[in-house]
Amino acid sequence: MARVKICGIRDMEAARAASTADFMGFIMSDRFRRFCPPSIVKDICSMVHGVKKVGVFVDQPLDEVIKLAEYCGLDMVQLHGHESIKYAEKIQKPIIKAFRYGEDFSVEGAEAYPAEFILIDSYSKNTVGGSGIAFKWREAASTIKRLKKPYIIAGGISADTLQEAITIFDPYGIDASGAMEIDGRKSPELIRKFLSAAGKKVVEA
């Protein structure tokens, strides 16, 4: 079964619901609506155990990324912008590097990047991620399956489309966010529904 990453966590209630996922993501750039203040991220990281905590950064100063990763107690750093290889080589924590399928995606470029995991997201001219839109999975599958590094599929995945994504890509992991929101906030109930669909243990309220 594919690993699960629940992204865009912003409060303790959602974090507890997502604690049985494999990864939990926090948006660390205040340019985006799902931004979670570092003080809250730090509290969640210190109180919620058994799940890898991932900070999502988008074209931010390198020293800021390094300092926030240490301050918050993050396990991993996700680079979701156009960060260079030299930039990534200076980060000491494991890296997830996001690429947007359709934006000149290159298997060779992804393989050359110094990241432990590759995340494939949907391309949108309006945002670098979190669009809630799935890319053309069947069209993209043969290309993405050429990756040798573990890859994570993102973009518009819900409890209803989860198994389809797993069947098409056979990925290391699935990343989901918007499908578990009501009025722009994570719903613990929808998080539990997604995790149940993914075959994960569910922590009841």
Results as ranks from 00 to 15, higher is better:
117 F>H: 09
71 Y>W: 08
122 S>G: 13
101 Y>W: 12
55 G>P: 09
58 V>Q: 03
118 I>D: 00
124 S>K: 12
136 K>T: 00
83 E>I: 00
62 L>R: 11
117 F>S: 08
63 D>M: 11
95 I>H: 01
94 P>V: 06
89 E>D: 14
131 S>I: 01
104 D>M: 08
71 Y>H: 05
66 I>H: 04
98 A>F: 10
106 S>L: 12
74 L>A: 08
122 S>I: 04
113 Y>T: 01
105 F>K: 03
93 K>E: 10
110 A>M: 09
126 N>W: 10
64 E>W: 15
62 L>F: 10
68 L>V: 06
87 Y>I: 08
77 V>T: 09
87 Y>L: 06
121 D>Q: 03
123 Y>M: 09
97 K>S: 05
70 E>K: 14
57 F>G: 06
108 E>W: 12
59 D>N: 15
126 N>L: 14
122 S>T: 15
95 I>Q: 01
89 E>P: 08
81 G>E: 11
60 Q>Y: 07
71 Y>I: 04
73 G>P: 03
65 V>M: 00
95 I>D: 00
124 S>L: 04
118 I>Y: 04
77 V>M: 07
106 S>A: 11
61 P>D: 01
100 R>K: 12
127 T>H: 10
75 D>E: 08
68 L>N: 12
133 I>C: 01
74 L>Q: 08
75 D>V: 01
66 I>D: 07
101 Y>M: 04
86 K>Y: 14
113 Y>H: 04
60 Q>K: 07
121 D>N: 02
56 V>A: 13
103 E>H: 12
107 V>S: 14
117 F>L: 15
78 Q>C: 02
105 F>H: 06
138 R>P: 03
136 K>A: 02
91 I>G: 06
132 G>V: 07
102 G>L: 02
62 L>G: 12
122 S>L: 05
117 F>Y: 15
87 Y>K: 11
97 K>A: 01
74 L>W: 13
139 E>M: 11
108 E>T: 14
63 D>Q: 11
69 A>N: 10
115 A>K: 02
129 G>F: 14
96 I>M: 12
